[in-house]
């Protein structure tokens, strides 16, 4: 080793973002497959899908849409804050996003526990005795919203990591790719809900 060893860290922001988008494409197709099944089943059992969708609480669904859309705005704003070196504001906006995500999950908890009380849960006797189309609707409903809620949960972990990193200063005005990519992930969670909400709650 000579004294002249120079460490050049290779960092390509464009590539980092592109990689995130490619990952998001795979996520889109993951949910896309479920949307495709939904579309075909709905075309075959439209009457049953109508009846089953009426069981869902549109108010809770609408509230969750408002929470997610607003949280998408706050996370987008947090990137602006970091770019302008307004660290405290960025921290506030990330925690606001986390709070809205938590409200979404609390809402989801009440919604699901209400359904479980009536015996509507995957594999229950109530579901087994339903017409075939309604059984399919609830199967897809639990699968799609469950997988989506899992993504919300992962997003919350990512946001928490970002919060800690902004506090420590490793995410700053010069280096905020992690926050940008986490933001992209969070928007994807929002995008999926934008389609899930009308298809599950508003089709009755």
């Amino acid at each position: 080793m000579t004294d002249h060893t120079v460490h050049t860290e290779h960092f390509d922001k464009e590539a980092g973002k592109l990689g995130m988008w490619i990952f998001l494409f795979t996520e889109m197709f993951l949910f896309g497959g479920l949307f495709l099944v939904y579309a075909v089943m709905r075309a075959q059992y439209s009457e049953d899908f109508h009846t089953a969708a009426e069981e869902l609480n549109t108010f809770i669904g609408t509230m969750n849409t408002v929470f997610l859309l607003t949280s998408s705005m706050t996370v987008a704003m947090s990137i602006t804050a970091i770019q302008r070196n307004e660290r405290r504001l960025a921290l506030f906006l990330v925690s606001l996003t986390l709070l809205l995500a938590m409200l979404f999950m609390v809402d989801k908890y009440f919604e699901w526990s209400h359904e479980f009380e009536y015996g509507v849960y995957p594999g229950s006797d109530v579901l087994k005795n339903m017409p075939h189309g309604e059984l399919l609707f609830f199967g897809l409903y639990f699968m799609m919203t469950g997988l989506h809620a899992l993504h919300v949960f992962v997003g919350m972990i990512l946001l928490t990591i970002n919060f800690i990193r902004i506090r420590k200063g490793s995410i700053n005005q010069e280096n905020f790719l992690l926050l940008e990519n986490s933001g992209l992930y969070w928007h994807l969670v929002d995008l999926i809900w934008i389609f899930l909400f009308p298809l599950l709650y508003l089709v009755s």
Binding site: D190, L191, P198
Partner: peptide, 18 residues
């Protein structure tokens, strides 16, 4: 109509938020 509105929303989120 629901799908049309959802598509407009998705396009808006992708263009501005993302």
């Amino acid at each position: 109509l629901a799908l049309l509105i959802a598509s407009i929303k998705v396009a808006t989120v992708i263009s501005y938020f993302m």
